[in-house]
Amino acid sequence: MGNVLFNAFSFLQKKLKAQDIPCVNAVLDLKDGQRVKDILDGLGITPQDIEGVFVNGKIAPLDTPLHDGDRIAALPPGTPGPYRLLLGLVSSPDKKSDKKKDPIKIEIRLFASLAPYANHGDMDSDGCLSFKAPATIRDAIQRLGVPEQEIKLVFLNGVGASLDSSLKDRDRVGIFPPIGGG
C-alpha cells in the first residue's frame, strides 16, 4: 500500500478537469501490485486518451509496476514534439536530481564568407541558436552545416576558443574563415 503522484499535461489536463478527475499533483492510493494501466483505469482514462506515460520522469510502458512514491505523468496524443520533450523535464520540485537544465540559448555570428550559413532555419531572427542538451561549439556549427575545414578562428565571448569548448546559456560565439586579402 502507498501513494503515487499523478499529473496530466496539455489538453488531457483540460479534458480531465472538465470531468472533475484529479490531474494536477493528485495523490492517489496505490494497492500492491498495481501497474500504470490500473491507475489510469481507476481514473477513467482510456488508452485512447493518452499517447505516453512518464514514471519518475522517464517514458514507461503501461504495464510498469508501481511503487510507493512514484510519480506518473500522462500526455495526450498529438502533443507537439518540443512540448513533449519539455514536459518530460517536469518533475516534483523537491527532487532536484530529476530536474534537467533549462535550454541553452547562444548568440552565434558567422563572419565574412561564412555569413550565409547563418540563414539556417534553426537560427532565431536575433542570430541565436537554442540547445536542449549540453552542447559544444562544434555541435553548433555542425547544426548549421558549416564545414569544419572552412573555419580558422573560433571565439567564445570575445576570447579565442576551440570547437570543443562547452556552451552555456547566453554565450556569444564568433566563427571566422581564413581571411588573407590585401
Binding site: 575545414q149 572552412e150 574563415p177 581564413p178 581571411i179 588573407g180 586579402g181 590585401g182
Partner: peptide, 24 residues
C-alpha cells in the same frame, strides 16, 4: 601562426567575396 598556420591551401574568404575598394 594562429591566423595563417597550416592554412596554405585553404580557400580564403577574399577568393569567395572579392575585395572592393571600401574594405582596403
Amino acid at each position: 601562426e594562429m591566423l595563417y598556420g597550416g592554412q596554405e591551401d585553404a580557400c580564403s574568404a577574399e577568393h569567395q567575396l572579392g575585395t572592393p575598394v571600401l574594405s582596403p
